[in-house]
Design a protein around this nucleic acid. Structure first.
Length: 729
DNA sequence: TTTATTTGATTTTTT
DNA sequence: ATCAAATAAA
């Protein structure tokens, strides 16, 4: 397309509401975009139109997405419409990337230094744990994960430690408040930020400094946001700070596809947009260009069971197509065999494997399926799961560079000091970090002079100095402007990482070496493709990178992923496995009575399918090493039977209890079900034993063991299932 | 400090 | 079942 084509050309092939959204002038705009209704198209064409019609310069546009992949795709598509020269100065990036960029420019204002580290989930979890221990709380009673969650929720809600303390209502929250306070202090000391901080501190920056705020308000005359239903409080605040004045804010989203509330996404942001901006123009995109009407009817019927949503009904002119295939299988193996069998049948009939995707609720469910796929020699790829950048060797390698870039980073130091083994153990590390904290010096400075650290033995001092002299050399090389890839390669050799792996002589170590080579290769690409490669820039680019970004969709293989990762994608043929109550919807959601988000997840899954949709459920499956019998998912019963080819009658959840209820003896396999924990004996029960006589249950242990005290015999541990024990009523 | 053994936990996870 | 992390032993 020529860059001189008239702006009108951008409207070709758009339907009426799409056109309206593209043409909308100044002021707030909410685009309610149902699944597959061409929202990316609207966004890209709107941006292009803003530029073409002369209403905005590229540098005045801020376009926000949630994933790097989406950002890249959007940039490419805009580029195709207006050319790459115009696109270069545009900010098309994720919330986090945009915040990081703003923060780098003004770090000193918040007491940070430019080269601050960005901590990922793992790093910040480590720091939380250190704080818990430092405050002498028991990390078993107060797990780092649970506390981190609270802190993260608070941050996403823009509550600082002080505000959190105000709202404390339980002993647990009291503990969290203290950990939160220390965590904040420590993370600033280390010149680091976690993912949430990027947003929170960016908001702080804009709120505290009028000049900075005014600057960005002037710069970004038009702000566009994709996946608006997934924004949290902090992101919402940020948008208001930048766009609140000129109000040229265009948000695109679908409340029915909000599936990240567990991460702080606040569905109210989209539901109440019209209250926040009473003059907002609202455009609904309901025509779907992706799926058959049958699939859409099924999805519409399921989502209709949710309350509190913007009513919306997808339609398509792609015809009715096939019914939704629903199948019941005996167990997870039968299910996997069925799926693979159907895949092969469809491929025989002319489908390509890369047109097929299998979705599941939890990552663990991919295993059985993978086994069967391997056995039948069907090529596949798994999205998510073990992520490249989360592998130990990769994280270690990155941590070496991080420590060089940020000498205050105690977490990075902790990670690398003992890996590979070089005589610097846990205790030594703790002493160094502890001393750095008391003295208020950088960890690097302390570690460089270990003889001054109290409590270190001679051997430890020697090991640390040896290690740090290597690090000093590497730092000089980094400051000398070495290329990142070279620096990385040298580091891995100098510190003995490569040698240690080679010495292992295992297949696993081999794989790790390969991964490291891949990392060096990607660093080389960074060097080549970046205008001004810097260590800070490189570290930022990888810390903000998710693995799903690298999903390659061209290889001729079947794709496996969780329903969550499936959002935003589409496949001609889709299987959703494990459609059982307890699995999907998950038992947690059922217990909490919070089914709406699970239902939205179901809606997302169903609407990924273009032509063919299979939903399978198993009568029994093995989970956490225990066999479970589950009822078919209540969501299956929400699909009108005439849209499906189900052989059984699926009864809505409430009525189902009477039909399936507890599994009938006939339905259970020949082997008796293990007695359920807590069903037969409870603490305090009076019991009688065949040889010991009467006693009382005083305790229970996992694995079906009861502890019974018999007068004269003392306490005995007995196997609940086999002991000749009866309850006395 | 390193290793072997036991324990425990286990949804989803754009950054 | 499985994997990481805590604990105990060498």
């Amino acid at each position: 397309m020529s860059t001189t084509a008239p702006a009108d050309a951008l409207l070709e092939g758009l339907n009426e509401p799409q056109r309206q959204a593209v043409l909308h002038g100044d002021g707030p705009l909410l685009v309610l975009a149902g699944a597959g209704s061409g929202k990316t198209r609207v966004l890209t064409h709107r941006i292009a139109h803003l530029i073409r019609s002369g209403r905005a310069h590229p540098g005045e546009i801020l376009a926000i997405t949630f994933t790097n992949k989406a950002a890249e795709e959007m940039r490419e598509r805009v580029e195709r419409l207006v050319g790459d020269r115009a696109t270069r100065r545009m900010w098309v990036m994720t919330f986090h990337a945009a915040c990081a960029r703003i923060l780098r420019a003004h770090a000193e204002r918040l007491g940070y230094k430019r080269g601050f580290t960005i901590y990922d989930e793992d790093d910040s979890l480590r720091l939380v744990k250190r704080c818990i221990e430092e405050l002498d709380f028991d990390p078993k009673r107060f797990t780092p994960r649970a506390i981190k969650r609270q802190i993260s929720d608070a941050k996403n809600d823009l509550r600082d430690p002080e505000a959190y303390r105000q709202g404390v209502g339980s002993f647990f929250e009291q503990t969290v408040a203290e950990v939160y306070e220390l965590y904040e202090r420590r993370i600033v000391e280390m010149n680091a930020m976690d993912f949430d901080d990027l947003l929170v501190r960016c908001v702080n920056l804009l709120e505290l400094f009028e000049d900075v705020r005014a600057g960005y308000r002037r710069t970004f005359k038009h702000v566009l946001v994709d996946e608006y239903q997934d924004t949290n409080r902090a992101q919402y605040r940020l948008l208001r700070l930048i766009a609140g004045e000129h109000r040229n804010l265009c948000v695109v989203g679908d409340d029915d596809q909000s599936i990240y509330s567990f991460r702080g996404a606040d569905i109210r942001n989209i539901l109440e947009f019209e209250e926040d901006f009473p003059d907002a123009t609202v455009v609904k995109l309901e025509q779907n260009y992706r799926s058959t009407q049958t699939i859409l009817d099924a999805a519409n019927a399921v989502i209709a069971n949710n309350r509190g949503r913007k009513s919306k009904s997808l339609w398509s002119d792609l015809g009715r197509g096939e019914p939704v295939h629903i199948r019941e299988l005996e167990d997870e193996f039968a299910e996997a065999r069925f799926v693979v069998g159907e895949i092969e049948r469809l491929v025989d009939e002319g489908a390509s494997r890369d047109e097929i995707a299998v979705f599941y609720r939890t990552n663990a469910q991919s295993r059985v399926l993978e086994e069967v796929l391997v056995r039948y020699d069907v090529g596949y790829q798994v999205v998510g799961g073990r992520k490249f950048y989360e592998r130990k060797e990769i994280r270690d390698a990155i941590a070496y560079l991080t420590f060089i870039a940020n000498p205050s980073d105690a977490i990075a130091f902790q990670r690398i000091a003992g890996s590979p083994k070089r005589g610097i153990g846990e205790t030594t590390q703790q002493r160094i970090i502890g001393h750095a904290e008391t003295v208020g010096e950088q960890v690097w400075e302390i570690a460089a002079r270990p003889e001054l650290v109290p409590g270190l033995g001679g051997a430890a001092v020697k090991a640390v100095s040896r290690f740090m002299s290597i690090m000093e050399r590497l730092r000089e090389r980094a400051e000398g402007g070495a290329r990142i890839a070279d620096l990385l390669e040298e580091t891995l050799h100098e510190v003995g990482y490569i040698e240690a792996l080679q010495a292992e002589r295992t297949i696993e170590a081999e794989g790790r070496l390969e991964n490291l080579e891949q990392l060096v290769e990607s660093a080389r690409q960074y060097d080549a493709s970046t205008d001004e490669p810097t260590l800070d820039g490189y570290l930022e680019s990888i810390s903000l990178r998710a693995d799903t970004d690298d999903l390659r969709d061209d290889a001729g293989v079947v794709t496996l992923m969780t329903l969550h990762s499936a959002k935003g994608l589409e496949y001609p043929i889709v299987f959703i496995i494990g459609c059982e109550d307890g699995v999907f919807p998950s038992s947690r959601a059922i217990e909490a009575g919070d089914l709406e988000e699970e239902r939205r997840l179901c809606y997302v899954g169903l609407t990924r399918a273009q032509r063919v949709l299979y939903l399978t459920h198993a009568r029994t499956r093995l989970r956490h090493g225990e066999r479970e019998w589950n009822q078919p998912s209540r969501f299956l019963a929400e699909i009108p039977p005439e849209l499906t080819d189900a052989e059984e009658e699926l009864v809505p959840a409430r009525a189902a209890a009477s039909r399936w209820g507890a599994p009938s003896p006939a339905a259970a396999p020949a082997r008796p079900r293990p007695r359920e924990e807590g069903v037969s004996f409870q603490i305090g029960d009076d019991v009688v034993h065949a040889t010991f006589g009467e006693g009382v249950v005083t305790g229970k242990e996992p694995g079906g063991i009861v502890i019974v005290r018999f007068p004269g015999e003392g306490e005995k541990k007995l196997m609940e299932d086999y002991a000749p024990l009866k309850k006395v009523s």
